[in-house]
Amino acid sequence: MSRIAAKFAELKRQGRGALIPFLEAWDPDQATSMALLRGMPEAGADLIEIGMPFTDPMADGPIIQAAGKRGLAAGVKVRDVLTMVRAFRVADNETPVVLMGYLNPILSYGPERFCVDAAAAGVDGLIIVDLPTEEADLLLPFSNANGLDFIRLIAPTTDDERLPHVLNGSSGFVYYVSITGITGTRSASAEHLAAAIPRIRKATDLPIAIGFGVRTPEQAGSASRIADAAVVASALIDTLSANLDPNGKALSGAVEKVLDQVRGLAAAVRGHTSAQTDGAIAR
């Protein structure tokens, strides 16, 4: 069983959903993002999503755009992202790690070589924003051959007729982009999610993660109960970027502040807070 499947099976036994925090590789430098990655499982991350910086992140809002820019300015390359995961796996062989990025750097690296190297480094799944099902054959044979889950994105614009097509051959989990929009801008309404998630459930048995617009512990707790997991990205990067000095270096305590925020999100997902406001995803 893959790490992703094992993790969701375990959480199902525990009767709760997953928290998937996000970090951008080498934002603002290698050491800081490595410290974040290493600290996340203990802070309550069930799975971890690592962003692979790209110069032209078309689905991302200003917050993640800036994070990617910092990573690129620090000199991160595709191989360095894989090196991060390899280093992480020395001490953690359980927490699933998913890479999120855009196609061109992977094409440049070579799709097959990328999948071989990613699997060897300990990556569990891939989310490629600009690789829709229509073009998936560019990567799918290689991700399948190397046991990597190719995680599909479902959007509010994906209608019932299209759902089975998009989900065909998917594995790991399904990522529901809960808003029509870019990352870090707005949040989905509870009514929207209450209608959207059952619609996707009818089309797949895979766990469903909600991403885009999940910022607060309340929203994360609620999303993890309506679906099976909550992805939190821009809110964490906001905290990190607020703790950088004018030269873009992380201030002391920056990593701890982000991890504290992960702890708060994790507590809500585990139902340990008073914020049991099911359904109140957004205001």
Partner: peptide, 20 residues
Amino acid sequence: ERGRFGEFGGRFVAETLMPL
């Protein structure tokens, strides 16, 4: 039918835009 000229072209967009 895939929008390709030889190996070039195609539809490399996020799922949100695909139906559009």
